[in-house]
Design a protein around this nucleic acid. Structure first.
Lengths: 318, 318
DNA sequence: CATCGAAGCGATTGCGCAAACGTTTCGATG
DNA sequence: CATCGAAACGTTTGCGCAATCGCTTCGATG
């Protein structure tokens, strides 16, 4: 009878006596409501899909953690899927989310996200894009790349470096493009020239970053300082520098994007830009929730401020 | 009409002509099957719940990643939830999973998991426990703690250390207990004595590990080598050692549990036991899938072998 | 050409729930 | 005491699907 539904959901008044009976019965039989059936009826699942391009990347890990926490607070369950930076997988993940009728999706777009994004738009699935800005039909949330890179270059240049190289991140990502542009403009702002072959534009993982770093450091006139575009490239660069037997910052200075918890255990401690991952995740979940509640809102792009943690990996040029 | 269902699921023969018509219609209207309704009918959701006690811990991150990958391969979606090591949250997460009618659960038990585990048992939800062995009514999968600790102590002792301290992990966990026991027996096996106050038994995070390390190193006759019980305590110990201005391994040797990708960027590179996280995650998902397929199987406890990565953080006692 | 069986397919039901709608009870009011 | 209306609760339907059941065809066979 409908009364038990109403007791469970407190959706209309039920006399205390009857309510007790119902609650006792529920307790006695260990009844657990079937969310599937409920969702089918009310056309809302209280769940969201979280499609991340690389779960194991610590940067995304922090975001996942924050998203999960905020969603838990909001009473949402989260489906987690790894798109592995593969547009095909990305599309099928988004499809699977839709088939499970998630109320919304948080997506870290791959390098070629158009098909997945069009699908979301077509199906009118609420969605917020994180980290990489890919389509302004949706809410987007990420970091302020221009000012972050500027802070980085200003810091490095303040030690007197004239020859600064850049090991960029993955091809295709807005993040990568923006940071490269910011690298250019920040050099200019410091009155520095962009030297030929000083930007390694495409590095998909630590190994390619290591190779790229070797390439740059093998130039006839190599940089005296290196800036890295994300955590993978930082690791890759550190490895290459070690392999060449160079010391940081004695022989070469290093600074880059993406802080991590143990950065202070590196020797020397690395100067890095820390993104507000927790805040990105939290706001993404909150934004999505708001969007689910009222689809009328017009999409907004949020840029969060990152903070430069100046430590000891930069020094005067050799 | 039922034919549509049969076309979609290839569950009985449909004439090619009719099938084409159906497929064209599906394509034309952009139809996506409603998995909710399907699940309600067939009483199976092709989804599993992954309840982790601390998502942001890199150890679990690697496991999450592997679980997700294997589940994707098996056609399962995964619900991710963080129990935050809190038994109450743990129970409500498991409840939420059940209400959503997941086909099974993978759980990294908290320090007091009995209520959640009893619930799972009562509801006959297929489940596999990871990392921490908590109840043999369920499949369990974790690492071989005895032999791993033994390898660690043998390694440290081989440098001639007589006074070895241990910074253990979180209270209540089987993992923590087993490693403490193994620490004792491994010392004995090397003919070494367990000195008073040399085991710090309970450290919930890096900060408490730092404090514990300071306490041990302040002993009148402090250890010349320190072994740590997990990645958090390793970081905590490194920080404390740094704060005291000691050098590794010159002043003190250090080795412990849980490798991480960038361990080779620490200075010195840390000697650590690497757990097969990817394999733990993969097997957990596979085991769960098997259990879902046939509930009759009797529960098994799988112990995976870890590998000691001997690097440069251990040396002769000062 | 009547019969039969297999191939192909449509009507219908029920999964567990929420909500619309109907029914009963009962105290208040004229 | 008849009437009314609000309070309390029961009946029913439909969400979208899978699967059961049973209805057509239609070619083969005697």
């Amino acid at each position: 009878m409908s009364t038990v539904s109403h007791v469970i959901n407190r959706t209309r008044f039920v006399s205390p006596a009857k309510a007790r009976v119902v609650n006792d019965a529920i307790a006695a039989m260990g009844y657990q409501p079937n969310e599937l059936a409920r969702s089918l009826k009310v056309a809302s699942t209280n769940s969201v899909g979280l499609a991340i391009s690389a779960i194991s990347n610590p940067y995304f890990t922090d975001i996942i953690c924050a998203v999960e926490a905020e969603c838990a607070r909001l009473g949402l369950m989260v489906f987690l899927s790894d798109t592995q930076e593969d547009p095909d997988r990305e599309l099928s993940v988004v499809r699977a989310f839709h088939q499970r009728r998630v109320d919304g999706v948080i997506l870290a777009p791959s390098g070629a996200p158009q098909r997945a994004i069009d699908y979301l738009a077509e199906k009118k699935l609420p969605c917020v894009l994180i980290d990489r800005f890919a389509d302004d039909r949706f809410d987007q949330i990420g970091v302020e790349n221009q000012s972050s890179m500027r802070a980085l270059i200003d810091h490095v240049a303040s030690f007197g470096h004239k020859r600064i190289g850049y090991i960029a991140g993955q091809p295709g990502l807005a993040t990568t493009r923006e940071r490269i542009e910011a690298f250019h403009s920040s050099l200019a702002a410091n009155g520095l020239a962009l030297l030929p072959h000083y930007v390694s534009p495409e590095n998909v993982d630590t190994a390619s970053a290591t190779a790229s770093t070797h390439a740059i450091l093998s130039l006839p006139s190599p940089p005296t300082a290196l800036v890295t575009g994300n955590n993978m490239t930082t690791i890759g660069a550190v490895r290459a520098i070690r392999e060449r037997g160079l010391s940081i910052p004695g022989d070469i200075s290093l600074a880059g994007f993406d802080d991590f918890e143990w950065a202070d255990c590196f020797e020397p401690r690395l100067t890095l830009v820390a993104q507000p991952c927790a805040e990105i995740g939290r706001q993404a979940a909150a934004l999505l929730s708001a969007r689910i509640a009222s689809s009328g809102l017009k999409p907004q792009a949020v840029r969060l401020q990152a903070t430069l943690h100046a430590r000891e990996s930069c020094g005067r040029p050799a």
